[in-house]
Design a protein around this nucleic acid. Sequence first.
RNA 1: GCGCUCGUAGCUCAGCUGGAUAGAGCACUGGGCUUCGAACCCAGGUGUCGGGGGUUCGAAUCCUCCCGGGCGCGCCA
Length: 571
Amino acid sequence: MNVRDLLNTRVQAALDACHAEGTAGIQTAGKPEFGDYQANGVMAAAKRQKRNPMELAADVVGALQLDDVADSIDIAGPGFLNIRLSTNFIADNLVLGTPLLEAQDPPQHTVVDYSSPNLAKEMHVGHLRSTVIGDAVARALEVLGHRVTRQNHVGDWGTQFGMLLEYLEETDGANSASDELKDLEEFYRRSRERFTADDAFAQRARAKVVALQRGDENVLAQWRHFIDVSLSHCDEVYQHLGVTLSRADVMAESAYNEDLNNVISSLAQQGLLTESDGAQCVFLDQFKKKDGEPLPVIVQKSDGGYLYATTDLAAIRYRTHKLGASRVLYFTDTRQVLHFKQVFAVARTAGFTTDDASLEHMPFGAMLGTDGKPFKTREGGVVHLTDLLNEAEQRAFELVSEKNPTLTETERLEIARVVGVGAVKYADLSKNRGSDYVFDWDQMLAFEGNTAPYLQYAYARIQSLFRRGDISVQSLDGTLRPSEPAERDLAIALLRFQENVELVARDGYPHVLCAYLYDLTTKFMRFYEQCPILTAQSLSARDNRLRFSHRTAETLRAGLSLLGIETVDRM
RNA sequence: GCGCUCGUAGCUCAGCUGGAUAGAGCACUGGGCUUCGAACCCAGGUGUCGGGGGUUCGAAUCCUCCCGGGCGCGCCA
């Protein structure tokens, strides 16, 4: 049940009945004394109608049908409507055994383009945000009943592969290729060194590129092998990260190779191509500098080569026309906003996208170190994701061992994995993706405040409760009926799961879900302090509180799972 | 030069289509475990929302100018 939607619909109907134009403007109440939800739209509607807002508010309340939902609707301030949900409504919608989330109607087919590392290098922190955020949004869409096609648009093509393949051939005698590629980053560094230091090598590398593009079977075999090894590295990282991407989701840049000349010829046929300095460009009116100087989208280089804009155009056509997606989401960093604006515009103009398809760039900011500069190792190198996760687990292990030394080492290792990886992911997911964020080991691994371990701890506490009380969850049928204030606060929070997940699916901001889960958890912690559960006064109160606890645990586990974060029964 | 974006408490961050006295966490101070896990809870206070001007019943949010940071701008992705 999306409570907010329900209220929006009802208040909207009342506005319509009063012939008032505008939206209901339902949001969660700013303060407890304002009820649970507030409608802010009446004042704006009154202004449009040139009416007294208080009068209109009274009319709207008169026309409002909320008997089955709310206890009270109060007009406050200059014309706010404060809505307080009724206990019956809350209880009716919090029934153990009913699904935590319901599907949205109608279901849509969404392509989610995320992670998309360059296979020439090892995965590093620069790939973390796209991978983790995109995965969370994909999961949110799926859980709401939408069809999701993941697209890992990996970079497997380009001139740097000539250099890498040449170097691979050169070194292959000594060790097996797999061994050589074990540290991709190092391999890349050494081959680049060779490339710059040795002209003969550089020449052979360029020849490799040509051979590769020409489709030379031997070189292609080398290339496939390299890609395969590199993808295996990615798979390992994805598995470690707990990300849903698999080989089946890989749709590499090279997959569009044979379609690129079609893209060009289609643009040419439509008269959209202009040659400029030997390059094929698309000039669109909406991309002009202030002085009228046009801004090109280059789709073919003067040497005949294609660019990422070309590939992206082919990908758009594939995703909308072939896959039939109605939404395509791109999780890339914020530096590419102009690129996507242009590519989307070209795609629309050229008919590479269907009319009703929505192309949405979901940009995210950079990861900075505590010094405010791009996050690097002490030596100034990129931080590999594997190292990052290992360090997180190491720190988590020390912490778990300190807090809970009686657990076996096996248990502590497993907890450290769940807590450490969860902390890293949550630190990223809990921030607004649009802006840069500071990656701070100490803060993230302090495991306090708005962190994954705080949520995981609440979950573990609830599991402990059931263990101690020897309660079987199956015995807890029925509704959650709040009576104490702390119970009511918790109940309202539980009711808001649906609307928050829907927001994530719509806007692609997982931090909204994080904020929700954190709020839910603080509400539970207060409930836990204030309302004795196992030692409640009456058996019915005890069972009711157990139901609250169980529902909270379910919501936490489901919510964290949408973020790709696991839970443990003890920690 | 043009464009995009950001500037909120000492630090890290929220603030949803403009809404009520701008909120959290960390840090700091004090309190709470013979009682369901103290990785917890409660209490305490801090803001020229970068600055000026404007729009209006109402602006952190919209417009404009200025200051400051980041990023982008024809053959990398």
